[in-house]
């Protein structure tokens, strides 16, 4: 491909992800490379909201002359997504029929997607699978970059794997990529990041040679470790509330303090569970019952054993 001809129009790379993932860093690496190769670059971004898992995106445009700092809808050459739902949010910004799609398949579920706090409850998160998306895109890559980076020994190197793939879609010399990445990452992690870059680049090459669609979706071999949280081991989908009406003194604490509002006082003013499906087994009613009238059972065995006649 004649790069000069191609770059008469600016090349548009859209980097997206969730706050804190490194969208800005990735786009800075790219912008620096473009600059060093003698192009005019414009980078504009929206960031913030990181603590709340908000979306972050960055427009990188380069070419001989670039006027607008933002990419018009439908003219993105490469969409680089660090998170799956964000990839889906921006996928229709790709140039129809020719854009390149690169995405990490990891899910970062925002708190507001938790429609029900019961463990195991389905979150309001996209259900489209990488395979479904890839089948609709000419040049797509979906991979568990985070998992791959973890296998390498540093989860933070996931973005560099993605850069490795990006390097096969843009026509910059490999040395420039390696040089700029080495300067941007923390000194102690240079080796591991270059390794990650090679891995991404190598995999993208094999995918290019292989026309099989399935090869474009790479899964990590190791499962992600469980997120540490309170009582994780003890948690179970099976929750049973055992309320002893003989001990309940109708103080109303459990009713008012239940975060799911799933208890109420019955005609006799005794606490009853009215919305068992909403009960998450959080134990707040048990802890705050001054009369020891409520016991929460969170394992099937204990719950069955506690069923009262």
């Amino acid at each position: 491909m004649d790069t000069k001809t191609k770059y008469k129009e600016p090349v548009n790379v859209l980097v997206v992800g969730v706050g804190g993932q490194g969208v800005i860093m990735v786009s800075k690496v790219l912008a620096t490379i473009c600059q060093e190769r003698g192009y005019q670059v414009k980078q504009s971004e929206v960031h913030g909201m990181a603590k709340r898992g908000g979306g972050v995106f960055s427009h990188v445009r380069y070419g001989e002359q670039v006027f607008s700092p933002t990419i018009p809808k439908g003219s993105t050459d490469v969409l680089l997504a660090l998170e799956w739902a964000e990839a889906l949010r921006w996928v229709n910004h790709l140039k129809p029929g020719e854009g390149t799609f690169i995405s990490d398949t990891q899910h970062i579920v925002p708190p507001f997607a938790c429609r029900n706090r019961k463990r195991g409850a389905e979150a309001g998160y996209s259900r489209e699978t990488p395979d479904q998306i890839l089948s609709r895109i000419k040049d797509g890559f979906a991979l568990d970059a985070t998992g791959m980076a973890r296998e390498l020994g540093n989860e933070r190197a996931a973005n560099t794997i993605l850069l490795g793939i990006l390097s096969t879609a843009l026509e910059f010399p490999e040395d420039t990529w390696r040089d700029v990445i080495s300067r941007f990452v923390p000194p102690k992690t240079v080796d591991i990041n270059l390794q990650a870059f090679d891995q991404g680049r190598e995999w993208a090459r094999t995918v290019h040679e292989n026309s099989d669609l399935a090869a474009r979706h790479r899964r990590s071999e190791k499962l992600a470790p469980a997120v540490p949280g309170p009582d994780r081991d003890e948690m179970s989908d099976f929750v049973q509330l055992d309320i002893n009406p003989d001990w309940c003194k109708s103080c109303d604490i459990c009713v008012k303090m239940c975060p799911e509002r799933c208890l109420k006082l019955d005609d006799r003013l005794k606490a009853v569970l009215t919305e068992p499906d909403r009960c998450t087994g959080c134990r707040i009613c048990e802890w705050l019952c001054p009369d020891f009238a409520i016991t929460v059972h969170r394992t099937p065995e204990a719950a069955q054993a506690a069923v009262r006649v």
């Binding site: 003989d246 001990w247 109708s250 109303d252 604490i253 802890w287 001054p290 009369d291 020891f292």
Partner: peptide, 13 residues
């Protein structure tokens, strides 16, 4: 049990 405390008495907690 039930204990002698009034309804809602924090002592039980």
């Amino acid at each position: 049990f039930p204990h002698f405390l009034c309804p809602g008495c924090g002592h039980g907690i």
